[in-house]
Amino acid sequence: MSVLFGWVLPYIVIILFLGGMIHRMLMWAHVPVPFKLTVFPSPKTTGGAVADLVKETVGFRSLWRGNKGLWFGAWLFHISLAMVIIGHAVGIYYSGHHFMMFGSTAEQSEHLSVVIGTYAGIALLLGLLILLIRRASSPQLRFISNFSDYLVLLLILGIAMSGMYMRWFADVPYSVVRSYLAGLLTLRPIAPPDNSAFMVHFTLVQLLLLYFPYSKLMHACGLFFSRWLITRPHERQVILK
């Protein structure tokens, strides 16, 4: 079992995930855009358009304009998800000692890493619950929701909960995960951590990555394409005084 789940599947998943995602983006890029579709007011320069994209991707400006409640749920979820993902990368790579770069001791760094990770995880759970309850409780939202809209939320909820379970009840040391992932990345796989919570967590993540290129999760990449259509700087044929 652990050979299949721990060694074989991760490679298949990562190839399908990256391949599928890149394929989708190439498909978008290949379709022409015959007309300028700018929605005004729009930035006048490329720099302005990029700034616009940043405001949108980091601050969720459009949601803020129209629906502060949804903005809070969506922003909280996405920001904490970003923090969790960055936290995973940094925390596992440096085994929780990354804050030593800023002058802390090893223990302080590990502690800080745990504290920040825990709060980010709670925020992620909270954001997910807000989004899920919002979707399930409003008749309007139920009308526009498909199975996958719930599925994706539940899947991420499962990932977050199994992660938090590991954090609180089944401590899996960074170093073990680090060796395992390093083995995978260097093509010299070793046995995965012998921990069922970890395996549940890791498998759910793989399922999510598998589903990613075929689902609405592609908005993470598509967002940049679709926003560029309406925010790209518009050059006038003749500039009037």
């Binding site: 989708r24 022409p32 015959p34 579709l37 949804l70 498909n146 394409f225 679709s226």
Partner: peptide, 23 residues
């Protein structure tokens, strides 16, 4: 879908968040 990128994208990237409804 072969000549309107906007159409293809818009069919792909919506997350059914419903922010548009009340607007």
């Amino acid at each position: 879908l072969k000549y309107k990128r906007s159409l293809k994208l818009y069919l792909d990237v919506c997350t059914h968040c419903g922010a548009c409804a009340e607007q």
